[in-house]
Each structure stands twice: as C-alpha cells, then as structure tokens.
C-alpha cells in the first residue's frame, strides 16, 4: 500500500467546466467524487491518475427527484441520501434495499451512486437493483449528452462504457410498476461491511396469478453485473409458485460465469446464484402490492 502520489488537482466550478476539463485531460484524468473506491485503488497502485477533477463540490449533481414518470438521481447523490429518500423507498424499494447493505455508514455517507457505477466492480451493490429497474445512465461530454442503458454500461471488471471525456451525471429509473414486487439479497462473508460473494435483485410484475414481467440481475458472478434474461423467460406468463420459481432459478447458472477468488469459489457462487435467485424471487412475490 502506497502513499497517494502527487497529482494535478482541478476543482471545476460547475458541470460545464468539469466537462471542459475532462475534455482537455481525457485519459490521464480521473473524476473524483466520494473517493471511497478511488482512494483505495490509488493506494493499491491499481491506478495512478496524473490529474483529478474533483466534482464533489458540484451540488447541481446531488439530487433525487421525480420528473414525469421518471425518478432521476444525480450522480453525486450519496448512498445515505438515496437510502433515506422517501421517494426511493416508496417507489424503487429494490434500490433502497441494496443501499442499506452497501459498505458501512461512513462509506454510505461519502460514496456516490455515480462512483459505484463508474467503478464498475462486478460486485457493485447498486448495479443489480438498477439493472432490474432498467436504469438509464446519462453521460455528458464536450460533444453533448447521451443515454446509456445500464445493461450496456458495464463492459468488464472495472471497465465501463464511458468515453475518456464523458462524465456520468444522472441515473434515471422508472418506479417499480403497479402490482409488482421486488427484492435484493446480498451474500457476504460477514453480516456488515462486506463485499458480495453473490448478490441478486429481482423484480416481478404480476397480472393476477400470472407473471407479466420478471427481471433478475446478479452481481459478483461474472466479469460484470448481469441480467438473467433466459431465467426471466421461464417466469413470464407463468403462474408463479414455489415450484415454478425453484425450477426457473436452476436456469440462472447458465447465465453467469463466476470465478474463484479469496471471497468464494466459482462452484459456491454458482450454487448460491440459484439459492439467492430463488429466495429473491420468493421475497419479491411475497412483496407484490395487491
């Protein structure tokens, strides 16, 4: 573990200036927000940014609001702010559930949703819930803005789809639909302050006893967080019960590609993906607002 090496510190006054600075320094620059992932990565010598653009002062990126049928979360909204937001708890409970078990209070007070996504850890806790919410990510650069569906955002371990001159500025999600239920389960190596061995988010939309839509996403079981679309297909238009859910959950192993590391073996991750998917779906079904 090393000291943080010297770097050029830039503090843009507004988003516009940040975009310009990033346009200028591109590849050699890193965006600094909460720093909770970035600083350990620098100390572990995984990255050595020459320039850091500190956007942590840009309050214009710190918001959680409803606009039309969308909930918009500014990239600098901290995990604590999201966790405590009545809007998030009321309309996208699956995200609130994940935020509750992310890191610890100190990390949640500092870490931002934008940072959690940009860091693109396969185990990022906010990724599976945002995937089942079909989140859209807004990025800005000197060239303009673009919307990236979250499914296209993660391109590999610690790699994302942003161009070197793009800043992630907003996360957009639709509220969980009527007659839907959702859940998030994280399996760590202890009960708090732990990285996921496997995490699972599920959202199901019911039409009477039939499942109209099902979305499942998993973390820490592939190079990126993944949606389990084949598994979802086994649920859609089915009458949901324990049996259907159990047999669908078996399918999930075909959609993941876990590795063995100090946190768990690939074999255990495969098993737990099934177990957690099943549990998560059952909990989601249980929570369907009737």
């Amino acid at each position: 573990m090393k000291l943080i090496p010297p770097y050029r510190y830039l503090r843009p006054k507004n988003l516009q200036e940040a975009v310009e600075q990033l346009g200028r320094y591109g590849e050699e620059a890193k965006i600094l927000a909460g720093g909770t992932d970035l600083i350990p990565m620098i100390r572990d010598c995984l990255i050595t940014p020459k320039t850091m653009i500190d956007i942590s002062f840009l309050d214009e990126l710190r918001y959680i609001r409803e606009e039309g049928d969308m909930i918009k979360i500014g990239a600098l909204a901290t995990h604590s702010e999201i966790l405590k937001s009545p809007l998030i708890n009321g309309k996208t409970g699956v995200l609130a559930k994940a935020e509750k078990v992310l890191g610890a209070t100190q990390i949640r007070n500092r870490g931002t949703i934008g940072g959690n996504l940009c860091n693109a850890s396969p185990a990022a806790d906010t990724a599976p819930p945002l995937m089942v919410l079909n989140a859209k990510l807004k990025a800005i650069s000197v060239e303009g803005e673009r919307i990236i569906p979250i499914e296209e955002f993660f391109t590999g371990p610690r790699k994302n789809a942003l161009k070197p001159n793009e800043i992630l500025v907003e996360v957009q999600v639709s509220p969980e639909p009527e007659k839907s239920g959702s859940s998030f389960i994280k399996l760590g190596r202890r009960r708090a302050l732990t990285l996921s061995v496997v995490s699972t988010a599920a959202l199901i939309v019911m039409d009477g006893v039939k499942c109209r839509d099902a979305r499942i996403a998993l973390g820490a079981v592939a190079p990126t967080p993944v949606r389990a679309k084949e598994t979802e297909k086994l649920l859609i238009n089915k009458e949901l019960n324990g049996e259907v859910i159990s047999s669908a959950a078996e399918k999930v192993v075909e959609e993941i590609n876990p590795i063995t590391d100090v946190r768990g073996s690939a074999e255990y991750r495969r098993e737990m993906s099934k177990v957690l998917t099943k549990r998560c779906l059952l909990e989601a079904l249980e929570s369907v607002k009737r």
Binding site: M1, P40, R189, R190, R191, A192, L195, V262, R263
Partner: peptide
C-alpha cells in the same frame, strides 16, 4: 468461521481488512 490467510505462490492475497474477514458489530 471466517478468518484465513490466503496465499498464491507464497504471496498473501488478502492483505487488508476487506478480504481478511474479522467480526463486525453485526457478527
């Protein structure tokens, strides 16, 4: 239940509190 030092070719892989797992208040 949780603590173990893991090596690869004699080098310790979990040389921090992230991956060397001691009990928290919740444990």
């Amino acid at each position: 239940l949780t603590e173990d030092i893991v090596f690869s070719d004699g080098k310790i892989l979990n040389n921090n509190y992230t991956d060397y797992v001691i009990p928290t208040v919740k444990d």
